[in-house]
Amino acid sequence: MKISESLFVAENICLAPIDHEKDAEIESRWTHDAEYMRLLSLEPALPLSAAQLKKRYEKIEKEQDEKKNLFYFTVRMRPDDRLVGFARLYWIEWSNAGGFVQLGIGDPNDRQHGYGTQVLRLLLRYAFDELNLYRLTALIPEYNPLALHLFSKAGFVEEVRRRKALNRDGRRWDLLHLGILHEEWDALQAGPK
């Protein structure tokens, strides 16, 4: 990698800051899609208003500014900057050089186009080559095979299987911790020998 190669720009999408004026209305629509919310989070799914999301954006930027353990990005299409998702590196522990990673593509029509793969590639480079982290973890519910595929393809491996940790639709599912180490990511960058 070279310094001239952007940390924030991929083929079709880019990582960008929050737009406090325009993003909330779009993201509010996504939160009314219960399937999206349940794929993304263990918390009970809940629709959020634009006003609630604007407050959340304030909180995110405050946390990022004060605690220095969160890096939050919006995901936008190139070149028109249309909002399509979000991505974050969070719970960063500097002394152990570890962190967690999460991303979401909000509109179902924007999924299955490879945007998630591009976002994850940018996030891994940011985590390993800029933050100099040693490892990353992703928490994925067993019922989200697309996310499992996305993270596995990027080099993550299953490390922990919390048996029956989730209860959704009257059935219990495992919660998986997937992890990747800096040296594993390095080896993937070098390509097949």
Partner: peptide, 10 residues
Amino acid sequence: VEGRMRQALY
């Protein structure tokens, strides 16, 4: 034991 977060502690 349900798994190990590899090398998570330094």
